[in-house]
């Protein structure tokens, strides 16, 4: 099949960017979008051009590296799919596809379609972990956890930290990402010990990074490649209120 691409090209973080048009000729419908970009890059290199820079790693939808806004929708409009798992058969022959990087102040463009997502790392460093003394590995069944708690925790733990929620939100809010981590860890007994400290610290890191606030539009859950639902955000709001009250009155 034949596709026309409008791709955001930007030499460096400080350079001005603009859209360039490329033609992907004779590409297979069984290729993923990123494999098509590989083909286009091969042609660009052969003709002495600069290949299009984009992030990718596992290419099986589990690492969270790929980050392309496809025709206005992060990871494209197929539900529960990362850009690397989006195949060309979902496009029509002759389509024009617009490819843009994530757009958010905390995610500055490094080059072309690649953005700097260190803001997410700083949020995780603030509290997205469980403090444990290292030693012998504990017995797998030493701490019984109700099945429903495990299920709800795992529904949040599937977050791969790709940042599509930020890219889709009209406010560039990172609430779905942060709420996934807060929910995942606060639901399990190992993480529950530090739940108050964690939610206060992670929310502060999120605000400090310059992400917007949540206006409950639901765009984040609509694009999440792992189908995380915004009920995790309600849980984080609840955790936050609880933590403030506890810090204010109990101590």
């Amino acid at each position: 099949m034949h596709l026309s691409l409008r791709v955001w090209r930007q030499k460096s973080a400080s350079a001005f960017g603009r859209f360039e048009t490329y033609e992907a000729r004779n590409v297979s419908a069984d290729m993923s979008l990123l494999e098509m970009l590989d083909e286009v890059n091969e042609d660009l290199i052969a003709s002495g051009g600069e290949p299009i820079a984009f992030d990718s790693d596992c290419r099986e939808g589990i690492c969270g590296a790929c980050s392309v806004v496809i025709d206005g929708v992060p990871h494209g409009s197929r539900h529960g799919t990362t850009a690397c798992q989006l195949h060309l058969r979902h496009f029509k022959d002759g389509d024009t596809i617009t490819l843009e990087p994530w757009r958010a102040r905390p995610f500055p463009v490094i080059k072309d379609l690649v953005v700097d997502r260190h803001a997410f790392d700083r949020i995780i460093q603030a509290g997205g972990y469980v403090s444990v003394k290292t030693g012998g590995a504990p017995d797998g069944n030493a701490i019984p956890i109700p099945k429903t708690d495990v299920d709800r925790a795992m529904d949040a733990a599937v977050c791969i930290g790709c940042g599509a929620c930020v890219a889709a939100c009209k406010n560039a809010s990172a609430m779905l990402f942060v709420a996934s981590k807060v929910s995942h860890l606060s639901l399990l007994p190992q993480g529950r010990v530090e739940r108050e400290r964690r939610v206060l610290a992670m929310v502060r890191a999120m605000d400090d990074a310059g992400f917007g606030a949540c206006t409950v539009t639901g765009s984040c859950e609509a694009v999440c490649p792992k189908n995380i639902r915004i009920d995790v955000i309600a849980r984080m709001n609840r955790e936050y209120g609880r933590a403030l009250l506890k810090a204010g009155f109990v101590e």
Binding site: V69, D71, S77, A104, K170, T215, G218, E221
Partner: peptide
């Protein structure tokens, strides 16, 4: 704050899932 969080808008913006009221 929300406006400042996205200084460069998308060329194509679709806001999937967001109702008109929202």
């Amino acid at each position: 704050g929300n406006r400042a969080a996205r200084p460069i808008p998308y060329e194509r913006s679709r806001l999937p899932g967001a109702s008109h009221a929202a």
